[in-house]
Amino acid sequence: MPKIIIPATVLILWFLVAVLGPWLPLQPNYIILPNILEPPSFVEWLGYDDLGRPILDRLIMGARTSFFVAFGVISVSLIVGTLVGTLSGWFGGYIDLIIVRFMDIFLAFPGILLAIALSGILGPGIENVIFALSVVGWVGFARLARAQTLSLKNRDHVLAAIALGANTYRILRYHIIPLLLAPLLIEATFGIAGVVIAEAGLSFLGLGVQPPMASWGSMIKHGTSYMLMAPHMVLAPGLVLLLVVLSVNILGDKLRDRLDIHSM
């Protein structure tokens, strides 16, 4: 049981801090010159960065960024992917063939390379990061939804619905999509971990959110220039990032065991 409680606590904290951020007494952009590169102390738990800004406050702002990007990307990808994949699997024939080829093309771009190119060309900003990562993210959901639809399509309850004269919308809405949800939910969980790393990665490359907004990735990038004098500038955002991703992955594993889906 403690194996679930700790990661769950981390994620609940991440959610609370992200949503309540604007109401917390934070000063992420408040510069205190004498405190430049000050290491962690009892007054300021995580120390100050190279401009004399409190790192803890900036980490919380970074939590907002990563949470909203993850939420946005997973929502868009899940909706688009499920829709495209289900329709492709259900209709079959030429529609399916074209959609599958289309998905193959998107799958041909390795890792976050397409997202790097897209956000590089569209320019930085949180909307562009969400767009770029959604363009990369929807394919995984679509492929999964299509495969599941293909196997569900010939089940008895679907055949019965067809025989009773239910229309396509009704069959997909009430007989197919509810059964897709479990595997899609697991994919979404692991997707969150991927998106959090990808957003931080884009920000690390300078393609994500722009200063003075904070992102864990850009904080790490920023800290690498001061690693000898102030290693806490790299340690703090990295450990928080690792903690969130680790928690998501642990819960994803548990969820997969619970829902007993091994085909993934």
């Binding site: 990735g217 790490i220 680790l246």
Partner: peptide, 22 residues
């Protein structure tokens, strides 16, 4: 394995530099 998939390479890299180079 769990740590390996969760640790971002843009953080692991600087940490390795800090430890083994600096």
């Amino acid at each position: 394995a769990l740590l390996g998939v969760s640790i971002p390479n843009f953080w692991l890299g600087p940490m390795l530099i800090y430890l083994f180079s600096l």
